[in-house]
């Protein structure tokens, strides 16, 4: 049992962490509901509820289109990334071949590259493939960001699956593909959800590639669209709109995390104890 003092500090500490992590989002929500000069006053609670900002962002630019772009790009990235990563993880986790750990290390080191370092090379690559200003270009470039860590996480999970199950399947006449997709894939669901969500968030939030590889506002994804929002004159930053847009694009992520919450928790602990 905790003493009263210890419990006091525990709750105090938790409160501080909650405030620090939630305040920026709360501030965004509050600001998004303000309009005009209200924006420049420091109110912790909104006095009026102006929904105008939320309407404006969809009217003044193709923000709905931007959200769909983001959804499409992030979903595409997750799907392609997971299917590639599962196959790769099967090979790296279950098949013995020469240079396996070297390959794993290479994959890990790729994920260490700063984005800026690969930016210009990636730009050339995407242009020569004819994917400039194209969503496939974004999906393609996001693989560089998401594949290394999805492969690593899935390989770890793949290694923890009992060898006997694989051997039983081999004796039952299952091919490698059957073992990978019919036996292991269903057992990897929690891991897939976790890594898939991480990849989705990474793709959803990505800014630098999205800014560089798109040119039309129709083709932009949400982070770029928000950053490039302009007001009536070029000297005005439409804070209200920006905040409203930020709230709109954060909500899907929160909903996703809540939906998969149980899966994530079991994904993070699966294999930790014998079940």
């Amino acid at each position: 049992m905790l003493t009263r003092k210890a419990r006091f500090f525990l709750y105090l500490g938790s409160l501080i962490i909650v405030i620090v992590s939630l305040f920026p989002f709360y501030w965004a929500v509050v600001s998004s509901l303000k309009s005009g000069s209200e924006l420049f006053r420091t109110d912790f609670f909104p006095s009026t509820f102006a929904w105008k900002n939320y309407v404006q962002i969809f009217k003044e630019q193709p923000f709905g289109r931007n959200i769909l772009n983001s959804l499409g790009v992030a979903t595409g990235t997750v799907l392609i990334c997971l299917s590639l990563a599962v196959s790769a993880a099967y090979a790296l986790g279950r098949v013995h071949f020469k240079g396996r750990s070297l390959l794993l290390m290479t994959i890990l080191s790729v994920s260490m590259f700063p984005q800026v370092a690969v930016l210009s090379g990636m730009f050339e690559l995407i242009r020569s493939l004819g994917l400039y200003n194209n969503h496939f270009g974004l999906v393609f470039s996001y693989m560089v960001l998401t594949l290394p860590f999805t492969i690593w996480i899935l390989t770890t999970f793949m290694r923890q699956l009992p060898k006997e199950i694989e051997e039983a399947a081999i004796l039952d006449g299952a091919s490698s593909a059957t073992i990978c997709f019919r036996i292991f894939l269903p057992l990897l669901w929690p891991a897939l959800v976790t890594t898939g969500l991480l990849a989705f968030i990474a793709a959803w939030n990505e800014f630098l590639f999205a800014l560089t590889f798109t040119v039309e506002s129709k083709a932009r994804t949400v982070p770029v669209a928000i950053a490039l929002m302009t007001g009536a004159s070029e000297y005005e930053l439409p804070w209200g709109n920006i905040m409203a847009a930020s709230v709109v694009v954060t909500v899907p992520l929160i909903v996703l995390v809540l939906i998969f919450q149980k899966r994530i928790v079991s994904g993070l602990t699966a294999g930790a104890v014998k079940g």
Binding site: P162, E164, I165, E167, A168, I170, L171, P186, L187
Partner: peptide, 19 residues
């Protein structure tokens, strides 16, 4: 290959497909 040998094996840990 194992499947072609017409042998079947029972494992210590049962190794049933859990799903």
């Amino acid at each position: 290959r194992p499947a072609k040998r017409k042998v079947a094996m029972v494992f210590q840990s049962y190794a049933l497909y859990p799903h």
